[in-house]
Simulated scan of single mutants.
Amino acid sequence: MGSAPSLGILNGTACSTGASAVVLLNMRDKDGSGLGACSGTLLTQRAILTAAHCVDGDVRSVSVYLGSGLPIIAESFVAHPAYRSSGGSTADAAIIIMAEPIGRTPIPLLLGRDARVGETAIVSGWGRTQDAVTATLHAGSTTISAVGGTLLETQYSANVSSVCSGDSGGSILVSEGGAWTIAGITSATSANVCNTGTNYYVGIRNSSVSSFILGIVPDAARR
């Protein structure tokens, strides 16, 4: 989707990683060569939500970095079967499965209602900032500008936070019942540079996406 297939947070704030449910994912091919980095969000102690384009193509292994210690090699990963890398896809969702519990508090899925235009949201990820700082967890607030049947959108502005390279697969969060919940998966931007244009997120309420997630992670928390 869009022209930036590997979406850090612009205008955001560096976060403590000690208990964060947002993790860094590093992809490698069969020879162990690096294929880029994405972000992901814990759904359960052993399941991480990310974007399908992060594990597409020649990816054969995924390692998970929690902010300290050594990366942990994932047991397996699966992309939404309807995902297509060309021409854009509203099925840009994937699940990373870990062999052992990670020991962080997961974030619930927002399934009880749609996200709302004008609603304040949080974006977070391990990608670039406007200063090109990478592999540091940042988060910041933005406003949802459009809600469709399959996608959510936010607009870049100097007054709000925005996603950039390395944030793909992270989540856009909205508040529900006093808790932050996952409303969408960071998928793409409309421009090759981060400080302009529209950001796109695959909506969790899309029935195809929610069915895929719950089919693999039936014990994922939801609101």
Rank of each mutant, 00 (worst) to 15 (best):
S20M: 07
G140E: 02
A146G: 07
V217R: 10
T13H: 11
T136V: 15
L152N: 08
G215F: 10
V78Y: 11
R113F: 04
L173S: 02
A4E: 00
S165G: 09
S187G: 08
E100T: 12
A93E: 04
A139H: 09
V123E: 03
L151V: 13
E153Q: 15
L109E: 07
S85F: 13
V78G: 06
S68P: 01
S3V: 15
R60N: 13
T198A: 01
T181Q: 10
A188I: 02
S211R: 14
D58Y: 09
Q155E: 14
S168V: 02
A132R: 12
I72V: 15
L109C: 04
N26G: 11
V147M: 08
A47Q: 12
V193N: 11
T186F: 05
S141L: 12
V193S: 14
T186W: 07
A91H: 15
R104W: 08
G36C: 04
L49Y: 13
S171V: 02
V123I: 15
W180D: 10
V217F: 09
A188V: 00
P5T: 02
A191H: 05
T120V: 06
N206H: 15
E100C: 01
D31S: 13
S68V: 05
C54R: 05
C194W: 02
G140H: 05
L49I: 10
R222Q: 13
V217I: 09
V217A: 07
S124D: 06
S141R: 13
S141I: 00
W180T: 00
L25F: 11
A94C: 04
G125C: 00
L35A: 00
G118M: 03
L42H: 03
S86P: 00
S162E: 08
A51K: 04
I182S: 09
T105D: 14
T44Y: 09
P106G: 08
S175D: 06
I9C: 03
V133I: 14
I102A: 06
R46V: 13
P101C: 09
L137N: 07
F212V: 05
H53S: 12
A79C: 04
I204D: 08
G203C: 03
S210D: 06
A99R: 14
A191C: 01
D56C: 01
V147R: 09
Q45F: 07
A4R: 11
I95R: 12
V123D: 02
G32Q: 04
S68Y: 14
Q155G: 09
V64P: 09
S20P: 11
M1R: 05
N206Y: 14
S165E: 09
P108C: 04
T189I: 06
T41C: 08
V174Q: 08
S168F: 05
S20A: 14
I182W: 12
E119R: 00
C54I: 06
S207H: 05
V147E: 05
G88C: 04
S6I: 01
T50Y: 12
A135R: 15
S175T: 13
L42M: 12
T129P: 10
P5Y: 08
S39C: 01
V174H: 09
S187D: 04
R28D: 08
V147S: 10
M98K: 07
E176I: 03
S39E: 04
V23Q: 04
V147W: 05
S165T: 13
I96S: 11
S39N: 05
P81S: 10
S190Q: 01
R205V: 08
T44D: 11
K30H: 06
S211K: 12
G103A: 01
